[in-house]
């Protein structure tokens, strides 16, 4: 099942999901009621931009300032995956 997502949506972490830094590894983790998701470095940069204000297009642009050659489809694929896991909400834009 693929979650719908458009470039004008303004994604943010779902209520009850919190990004934090793992005290042992310094990796970014998502904490939520029944679990923990460890994010890789790129995913962490993407998720930290998802504040409910920036659109997906703006998130892609912001990530592009950190990493060269960021593909829109890669970012959207990650966001869709997090939406499917009920960790992120799209906020229709």
């Amino acid at each position: 099942m693929t979650a719908p997502l458009s470039l004008t949506d303004r994604p943010q972490l779902r209520r009850g999901v919190r990004a934090a830094t793992d005290p042992l590894s310094d990796e970014t983790v998502l904490l939520f009621p029944e679990g923990v998701l460890i994010l890789n470095e790129t995913a962490a940069v993407v998720v930290r931009q998802c504040d409910g204000c920036l659109s997906v297009a703006e998130v892609v642009q912001a990530v592009g300032e950190v990493y060269d050659g960021v593909a829109v489809e890669d970012v959207m694929s990650l966001l869709r995956d997090l939406i499917t896991q009920n960790l992120l909400v799209a906020n229709r834009g």
Binding site: A20, D22, P23, L24, V29, L31, G35, V36
Partner: peptide, 8 residues
């Protein structure tokens, strides 16, 4: 617990 890495 925190020193052991417990998050939840």
């Amino acid at each position: 617990a925190r020193q052991l890495g417990v998050l939840q």
